[in-house]
């Protein structure tokens, strides 16, 4: 459907959805640091628990989140494969005369790696893509990066370009579909023929698409100028972001969680990852 399934944003009304997007960007970074702090079984158990808690809090179907891991399965499989076979440790699992030697440490490392990547994806997904609209995310990044304006980085302009691009993705995809249908109605064939023929068959779609996209860009520029758009200086926002106490609290909590993980590592219970 139009514009609904764009990106991964999943509309809902959870605590995480209502959070300030700036806080969510900070939280996502903190959470990534947390995943890298973990080094032993206990810490990983805590991390996994926190990820599950986040999923519950975001009210996003678990099925949907697991689906986002699917494209990365190959990378996960590859890293665990390398970890299992390449880690040298002390506890040998395979008979000593085998050419391939697998150590218990390698298996542990592989398990940790898989957990780490999965929690990384789930965490960033829940803090950013699933609960934050792309536009809110652009706003948040603009505000978080605004100190860079001091050294003349045009942060606002980049953010504006980004928002406009995001805004026009559904429009353009709808337009492509319309033009494709119109050309199909005139007997266009996009599915058969050699590579060259198929590339040629795209011309009747691409030319009208570019013509209208460029026309639209000029119209948009005129419309913005008519409404006296002049960039960053003195511009107010329609969606004013409010940083609330709960946002600060969340950041504090995640920081404390990170500190907790650090100490769990020090406890030295169970296997501790060696590098």
């Amino acid at each position: 459907m139009k514009g609904i399934s764009f990106g991964q944003y999943y509309p809902s009304d959870s605590m995480l959805h209502r959070m300030d997007p700036r806080a969510k960007v900070v939280l996502a970074v903190l959470y990534i640091v947390c995943t890298f702090l973990c080094n032993n079984v206990l810490a990983f158990a805590a991390l996994l628990l926190s990820a599950l808690l986040l999923v519950c809090m975001s009210r996003i179907p678990l099925r949907l989140i697991l689906r986002s891991i699917r494209p990365l399965l190959l990378i996960i499989a590859l890293t665990s494969f390398i970890n299992v076979f390449m880690t040298k440790g002390e506890q040998l699992l395979t008979p000593a005369d085998w050419r391939i030697q697998i150590y218990a440490e390698g298996v542990w490392n592989a398990v940790f790696m898989v957990l780490r990547i999965m929690v990384l994806i789930i965490g960033t997904g829940i803090f950013l893509t699933y609960t934050t609209t792309p536009l809110a995310l652009t706003d948040a990044l603009e505000l978080l990066l605004s100190p860079l304006k001091k050294i003349h980085v045009p942060v606002h302009d980049f953010a504006m370009m980004m928002s406009i691009a995001l805004r026009f993705i559904p429009t353009l995809s709808e337009e492509t579909e319309k033009i494709m249908n119109a050309q199909k109605a005139r007997g266009a064939n996009f599915t058969t023929g050699g590579l060259l023929q198929r590339a040629k068959a795209l011309i009747p779609i691409l030319i009208p698409l570019f013509v209208s996209a460029i026309g639209r860009a000029f119209e948009l520029a005129s419309a913005m100028e008519c409404r006296c758009y002049h960039g960053d200086e003195g511009r107010t926002r329609m969606r004013v972001l409010k940083f609330q106490a709960s946002d600060a609290l969340a950041i504090v909590l995640v920081t404390l969680f990170g500190v907790g993980l650090f100490f769990l590592n020090r406890l030295g219970i169970g296997y501790t990852r060696i590098s």
Partner: peptide, 17 residues
């Protein structure tokens, strides 16, 4: 079929190329 039933979409001028 698409030659027997000719379809003129809304704003067909956008399909010229």
């Amino acid at each position: 079929l698409c030659f027997r039933v000719g379809l003129v979409m809304q704003y067909p001028e956008y399909q010229l190329f």
